[in-house]
């Protein structure tokens, strides 16, 4: 699974900061290009070093970078498929939130070695949700900030108005608070269940 994660980071950095900078960072780390082969296994330690190096190079917190990565994955036309697969989760943002718990299973259906941490959703009150993401060292990065970016972008996608707050983590989980203020704040983006690409 880390080949895919590394590849996602590569696309994000190349598109956001340019090829030259990407080369500079990876060459300094001496990372082999097979580490960015989406279907190939890769040591999570490589991902951890990569995130640390990028964080140092940009002078930004790793969590900030990872949140941008999450937003990037949903909003970039070239990773449109991720947005689409997430949109299968529900017809509106509330239903999408409820489908978050299925994401690890769905990811495994798509790629059997895709091993995302467990996600739990708790209703705290009207429109108030707490998303708990299991903490794992298996991936070489924390998924909480990435999911935060994904949620931000998906709320836009559904046209929902939300307040998102990364509440940090304890020993076993990361916590994101979601306040769904208005389900139909804006018109959102279209989603057709079938695309020209899948239906032949």
């Amino acid at each position: 699974m880390n080949g895919l994660i590394n590849r996602a980071i590569e696309c994000f950095v190349r598109d956001s900061y340019g090829d030259a900078l990407w080369q500079e960072v990876t060459e300094a780390l001496g990372i082999d290009e097979t580490a960015f082969e989406p279907l190939m296994p890769c040591d999570p330690e490589v991902t951890a070093r990569l995130v640390a190096a990028l964080s140092a190079r940009f002078g930004r917190e790793a969590a900030d970078l990872l949140e941008d990565l999450g937003t990037y994955l949903v909003t970039q036309p070239r990773s449109e498929v991720i947005r689409r697969l997430l949109r299968f989760g529900g017809v509106d943002f509330a239903e999408f939130l409820e489908s978050l718990e299925d994401i690890p299973d769905r990811a495994r259906l798509a790629m059997s070695d895709f091993d995302l941490p467990a996600i739990n959703l708790h209703m705290e009150g009207a429109g108030l949700y707490r998303v708990e993401i299991g903490r794992t060292a298996r991936a070489g990065l924390w998924f909480g900030p990435v999911l935060l970016g994904v949620l931000r972008a998906m709320a836009d996608d559904y046209g929902a108005l939300v307040l998102l707050d990364y509440r940090g983590c304890d020993a076993s989980r990361e916590i994101i608070e979601v306040h769904l203020l208005d389900e139909a704040h804006a018109s959102g983006r279209d989603f057709d269940l079938a695309t020209a690409g899948t239906a032949r």
Binding site: L85, F88, R106, L109, A110, M111, A194, T195, T198
Partner: peptide
């Protein structure tokens, strides 16, 4: 449909 798209 999800599965089909993911597998594609």
């Amino acid at each position: 449909l999800y599965l089909l798209e993911a597998k594609t």
